[in-house]
Design a protein around this nucleic acid. Structure first.
Lengths: 228, 228
DNA sequence: CGGGTACTTGACAATGGTCAAGTGTGGTGG
DNA sequence: CCACCACACTTGACCATTGTCAAGTACCCG
């Protein structure tokens, strides 16, 4: 697939006229990183932002003792690292590839020019940032107001695709990363999955999980306690 | 002060040409609410967004058991409730006045038209949302990776105005609200302030707090433990 | 087949939340 | 102007959740 089609396929650039897409292509840097590569670190001066073409990038914070909290995973077509373009100049978190990933980089100055000229690009960006704000309010809510079983239940329901999902799902990340995403540690995830299994709410086979009792899982997500 | 000057003083509208400012005035609704008024609730359909002219509004989440987590306080010149204009349509959190407050309301459809026409308005909005994202990543980090003494220490340092502050500060909110902002409860705040006092790190007189040992407070904010 | 990583399980500890019973304290009405 | 009431705040005893540490098992990749 050539670069212009890849660019045209990025939701952020939806609605851009062809000439401007070509302009975008001209200033893009196409980079492929192996698994575990640090794309940027918190506090670094930002010279632009990234879009994931393929692969997966995790955005995370680190505590002084080395514990990590994943803010979100970025996958195909999504962008990351935009915040410093509009506020502050420095990255607010770390970014690291979780698997071999192809990224397009867009330099800040050019992009700011483009966005000033094209209202639909500005609107797309506003929509992106707004969605992320919405997810962050949810993350704050879960970390502060819900217990781990509740967060885990909510995540399983999310993965299974809500009401009309099949009830079968497969984790795309390790349980350790899942723990970090939910603001806890692998041991706790392990124990809670164990409890859920022994109560026939779910069935776990490695990374494959089947939901056996969706109602009960929804109750857990809503705050009901998991019996000891 | 007349309305156009108030509008012109709102950071979000900085750089707008005079004719457009007058357009903005024409569609604004000027509302004053008493203390404790619910401006909107989570999940409500949004028809526009708000700017605080005077007073103070808290944006917060509620757990199923009624515990609240304050996301942030909005004061003079700042806006809130913009997220649904660009993503989702529904408010992601609750908004309530903390004191008697004067708010300007801007209907969604009009504002979207305006923002499409005026790139500087879009840029201002992008900067606002980006700053809020940055604060939220910080909130997530603190809730997930830091303990309450650390969060409280960081907040006191923030209030005291950083390095060059006087060391004297006054809380603009009750300690109960401070607890909710830091993701904990009043009892815990009370206990930790007590410990900090008995170790001569701070001095508390009602809502007035003096920092006696800034170095120690900074160590706490960085993750050092508070001795029992 | 080997080695490292992911995962599990158990015993323990600690942070911080719950419940309860106070002690101020500011504002309002008599 | 004072008494009272509501509300903010404090303090203590207790306990739930979850993190820490340690050891062992399973599993994937080369």
């Amino acid at each position: 697939m050539n670069i212009i089609d890849l660019i045209a396929g990025i939701p952020l650039f939806r609605g851009l006229p062809k000439e401007q897409l070509e302009e975008v292509v001209a200033i893009t840097t196409d980079q492929t990183f192996h698994k575990g590569h640090t794309v940027f670190s918190e506090g670094e001066e930002a010279s632009g932002f990234y879009v994931v073409i393929s692969g997966q990038v995790k955005i995370f914070k680190l505590s002084s003792e080395g514990k990590e909290q994943i803010l979100h995973f970025v996958t195909g077509g999504e962008s990351f690292g935009e915040v410093p373009m509009f506020a502050g100049g420095r990255f607010p978190a770390h970014a690291e590839t979780v698997e071999r990933s192809r990224l397009f980089f867009f330099p800040r100055a050019f992009f700011l020019e483009l966005i000033k000229k094209d209202p639909s690009l500005a609107m797309n960006m506003l929509a992106d940032l707004s969605k992320r704000l919405r997810r962050f309010t949810q993350l704050v809510e879960e970390l502060s107001l819900k217990e781990v079983p509740s967060r885990l239940a909510a995540y399983l329901i999310y993965l299974s695709g809500g009401e009309n999902g099949s009830g079968d799902l497969e984790l795309s990340i390790t349980k350790g990363q899942l723990a970090s995403l939910l603001g806890t540690i692998p041991e706790t995830i392990s124990r809670i999955l164990g409890k859920m299994s022994s109560q026939d709410i779910i069935e776990v086979r490695g990374r494959k999980i089947s939901i056996m009792n969706r109602k009960k899982l929804e109750d857990l997500a809503a705050g009901e306690k998991l019996i000891v």
